[in-house]
Design a protein around this nucleic acid. Structure first.
Lengths: 157, 157
DNA sequence: TTCGATGCAAATAGTTTGCATTCTA
DNA sequence: TAGAATGCAAACTATTTGCATCGAA
């Protein structure tokens, strides 16, 4: 298992910028990598590796899924990309510089992205009490949304 | 997909109690089910389905993994069992009445179980601000522990 | 004597790895 | 042209499902 290197989160504003970052580290700006990056720049929302491999549902040529995973990991190590997990489904990838934290309903799956500072006071409580620096950008804060809480309460007590 | 029924969380203090609960719902107290319950009563810590199938690493006779999953789900619907996910690895199962919430370090995997009321003020903030009833018993509160926070900060900024 | 439950095998989702081939620097 | 990256297949982890058989009530 490779050490979990998150990499410095230095967003690349343009595709050429990102390719330049690759080259400057001695990595190669291959067609396959360009394709993945194009998809990420084109996607308004975080996307799964599979959607990237599908060329964003056909908007770009297909690429190999295994290579997409490898390349997304490379980009993540360079700080170009971040990925996170919602409760269900595949991991989602997005360019850095668009970072959010996520709240998810474990019952209906509803996702709510929030700006990181919206949870700073929570972070402060958890850090003070348990010495843990809480982060909700890679794994979300999970709970029950207003629609689901009543139904769940009935079943539980 | 079956509707996510959590079931009323009524702990069964003894094995016979749990078997009785099965019978009272018209379900059968089979040998396989007895075996799973024995493992859960014998385990001091939450256990994976695989460890249960292995008879708690040989302390009990083996059982079929698929049946173990089926039975754990049945028990969960009866409110006898709860399961939760840490960041890595399989889901973990434990008898109800031992409920905890979990804090996990996303970098080193360190797990810290806490009593549910230790996070009540966090719950209150999140509910007030986002209308989400936060729960950290099924999916943990994830962050960086004191050992890992400095290393991660270096790589990220 | 019924259904409910079992055990085996096979399928599933998401992701990773091995390896011969291809392409970039 | 050397070594990085690709593409395909195969492995992998955790879990679920189909189905013929078995067994508890």
């Amino acid at each position: 298992m490779t050490a979990p290197q998150t990499g410095p989160a230095l967003p690349a504003p343009t595709l050429d910028d990102a390719l330049g970052r690759l080259r400057s580290r001695g990595l190669r700006a291959s067609t396959a990598r360009r394709l993945v990056l194009e998809s990420l720049f084109a996607a308004p929302e975080p996307v799964s590796a599979e959607r990237v491999a599908d060329g964003l549902d056909g908007r770009f040529p297909r690429s190999d899924l295994a290579s997409v995973y490898r390349n997304l990991e490379t980009f993540e190590q360079l700080g170009l990309v971040r990925h996170f997990h919602l409760v269900h489904g595949p991991g989602l990838y997005a360019l850095t510089g668009r970072d959010r934290e996520y709240l998810v309903c474990e019952r209906c799956g509803a996702v709510r992205p929030v700006l990181p500072d919206a949870l700073d006071d929570v972070r402060e409580i958890v850090r003070g009490r348990f010495g843990l620096l809480a982060r909700f950008n890679h794994h979300p804060l999970v709970g029950l949304c207003e629609d689901c809480a009543p139904a769940a309460r009935d079943k539980e007590e």
